[in-house]
Design a protein around this nucleic acid. Structure first.
Lengths: 129, 129, 129, 129
DNA sequence: GTGGTCTAGACCACG
DNA sequence: GTGGTCTAGACCACA
């Protein structure tokens, strides 16, 4: 499914949250699709089940998945919550990242190319799949 | 100068690093300009001087400032070091952010507009100031 | 493990950095071997844990070790980074040291003998251990 | 005469000590030759006279120069003092430096070449000049 | 149990 | 007055 960097300073559960979020965001995990059971994923990744559960709880809190007790965890169809706040935060991040890339020597042209390829890819991913 | 979020999960010293880095990257703090003294900034932000010093040292490691014991801390003229690794990391971040913004409902057009305005602003900021 | 000179002008944490770096460089501490816990080493050396942590963080910056919060600190396998700058600095140091040894009366023969024994030892140390 | 790095973390007076020591060790400053007056050197380097005086005092303490009150400072003919202690310290430094160079990828051959060239140069410098 | 963060407060070297 | 070092002691997150 994906790999964890056990040597990273980033907590394992947070890496999990990010990886799964990316899979959902990039439409690899579709709406209402079931996520692997906590114990299954834990044994696959050879991490503590508590760690996986913590990641799932975090994803639920952030509105990316929902859990049916006794059934499992599933990808949410939409993310109705505080989009505005999250989007504002993302916009700020994007501005900061671009500013730093410019500062470190990336040309506007290079950045624009990268962004355009992202936009094309994302478009295809969410519309067609 | 700026504000800290004492309730954030991010350590104070890291928030400081990011804020100051942003000021440098956006050319608000110019090359060789002196930063506020450790104790001064600490009292302004009502944090411990050690915390500010930790941030300054971190910025020094990352190549954004240099400190002269007994003199003060100053903005470095250039950041010549291992940009490539940092730039790769930033590119990945940018990709993830755009994917998430698309997922949360931003249109490609909106994102493109935002990026273009960033590129224009950065260009002006670094060249003319 | 080793001894500190508390009366030296060199900061304790830097002495620590040097001592541990030497152990790694001479292959006494092997790759991925766990270093003593911060608190343990601190109590052994009767210094403050913060001081040991500062040394560990410095070693991490310099690429000799890595720390996993909650797990421990470990010796890094390789040091891939900007060797060139460090190597140039070491070459200058070596030149200065040899010049001073000559000045203080050491013969070229004596110095050569010392160097040769170092080269032999280092060779054996890194290859066979 | 030489240059100081005012942006270095190393204290100015220590840079001065090292530079002058190098000039003596490499026989650029000969025995009993007079050093520039404190005020002269200070104004040449645009540093505080106190700083130069501190460096001279340090060099006198280390046995490299002697001062005749009212006359000036002069290079000592020989360094009779604690050679053995200093030489032992230098030998340790040399061992550590070579070990680190090996660790960072320098071959024994490369190091040997460097050392030989140092030995030849030093020999010429002290004997013929 | 681990590393990490933060505070309060003291002392030092440098110029 | 500057940055830097160090201590003592508290608290937190992670696994």
């Amino acid at each position: 499914m994906f790999e964890l960097d056990l040597r990273s300073r980033a907590p394992i559960y947070e890496q999990l949250v990010e990886k799964i979020k990316d899979l959902i965001v990039n439409n690899v995990l579709k709406a209402d699709e079931q996520l692997p059971a906590v114990r299954v994923l834990a044994s696959e990744l050879t991490v503590n089940p508590n760690t996986v559960q913590k990641a799932y709880r975090e994803l639920e809190y952030r509105g990316y998945i929902y859990s049916l007790p006794g059934k499992g965890s599933f990808v949410k169809a939409a993310v109705p919550e505080n989009n505005t706040a999250r989007l504002q935060s993302l916009e700020k991040d994007l501005e900061r990242i671009i500013a730093e890339m410019i500062f470190l020597g990336r040309s506007a042209q290079q950045i624009d190319n990268l962004v355009q390829s992202c936009l094309v890819k994302s478009k295809g991913g969410t519309v067609n799949d």
